[in-house]
């Protein structure tokens, strides 16, 4: 594909002397229009980074006065002491987002890869169409619907299960577990559909070769098809991570929004805190609307924005690096 050069309008004009001047003009016009649009897009992207970056930097450079205090990097990124007035240690927001990604991936990745293998390789063709349709329908459900179902079904269910094991009314159900359940279901179809495409893109010759050499169908799937589809599957996983990182509305319904780290540490072992906690996006959602500049809260929210932006940029970079690799050249 890439080794075929598309002829430029000027070359077409030379080689096709019969073309009218008007058509060539439109050709030139559209060519420059699309170029400008593409450049415009890049300019906007750079602008977003510069704008949010400069806003976020104020957290560390603000001149202290009645409404603003200046924070050090240590105060903001390493501390978890937060009260929204004097202390803005935001480490636990980062911990929250990363814990949510890890717990979500633990459930979503195996499940969606199994589902993808079933859809692409095992499922009888009669079942394949409807199942694929169901997964894609799932993909289109707006996140607020996941949030409402989470609030009205998942949270009470988790509360009752935890209270049953704890033997009393100790839990309210909000927190990391509820968020994990909701986000797992949200990103399942993302990873599944991309994985199905990746598995189906593995050349048929390879499967037939494997089967002809005497491999069972399971051996063919695990040792020939899955390795070939791995870059595609990993791209799906990275996009799933990006969605888990950026998901706001559905998580805000069920995470609880407390200023509490999701991972605790006893003297001997770390444990998952089962009460309400926070992630970066819910902090922004809850507090940005009424935060007024100039204030430290307002500055730190921009810093959080920038952290989110950088992480999502890194994830996109990783997914591009992975998807450009080919196992079977």
């Amino acid at each position: 594909m890439s080794d075929i050069q598309q002829p430029l309008a000027s070359q077409v004009a030379k080689s096709n002397p019969g073309r009218s001047a008007g058509k060539i003009f439109i050709d030139y016009l559209s060519h420059s229009f699309f170029t400008v649009m593409a450049l415009f897009f890049v300019v906007i992207l750079i602008g977003v980074y510069i704008f949010i970056g400069s806003q976020s930097y104020q957290t560390f450079t603000a001149i202290p006065d009645v409404s603003t205090i200046r924070l050090s990097f240590f105060d903001f990124f390493v501390s978890s002491k937060y009260d929204g007035a004097q202390n803005f240690g935001s480490l636990f927001f980062l911990e929250g987002s990363f814990s949510l990604i890890v717990t979500t991936m633990v459930f979503a990745v195996p499940f969606s890869i199994f589902l993808a293998i079933f859809l692409a390789e095992i499922s009888p063709s009669r079942l394949r169409g409807p199942l694929r349709g169901a997964v894609e329908l799932f993909l289109g459900i707006p996140s607020i619907i996941f949030g409402l179902i989470g609030l009205l079904v998942v949270v009470p269910a988790i509360r009752d299960i935890l209270n049953f094991f704890a033997g009393g009314k100790f839990f309210n159900g909000f927190g990391l577990i509820a968020a994990t359940v909701v986000v797992t279901f949200m990103i399942l179809p993302t990873i599944t559909t991309i994985s199905v495409d990746a598995i189906q893109a593995v050349p048929r010759d390879l499967r037939e070769g494997s089967l002809a050499l005497g491999a069972t169908r399971w051996q063919t799937i695990t040792r020939t098809v899955l390795p070939g589809a791995l870059p595609g599957i990993l791209t799906g996983v990275i996009l799933g991570i990006a969605r888990a990182l950026g998901e706001t509305v559905a998580v805000a319904f069920v995470i609880g929004g407390a200023f509490h780290a999701p991972i605790g540490l006893t003297n001997f072992y770390p444990y998952i805190y089962l009460g309400p906690t926070s992630v970066m996006t819910t902090d922004l959602l809850f507090n940005f609307k009424e935060a007024v500049p100039p204030s430290t809260l307002y500055n730190t929210l921009w810093t959080m924005c920038f952290v989110l932006l950088v992480f999502s940029g890194i994830l996109v970079g990783i997914s591009r690096a992975i998807s450009s690799r080919r196992i079977y050249a």
């Binding site: 009260d83 929204g84 609030l151 609880g256 407390a258 509490h260 926070s278």
Partner: peptide, 18 residues
Amino acid sequence: TESAGQTLTQDTTGAVAT
């Protein structure tokens, strides 16, 4: 100043009621 750790936060009065 309220304790930071344990409280649930809800966006709007309607969300608090829900």
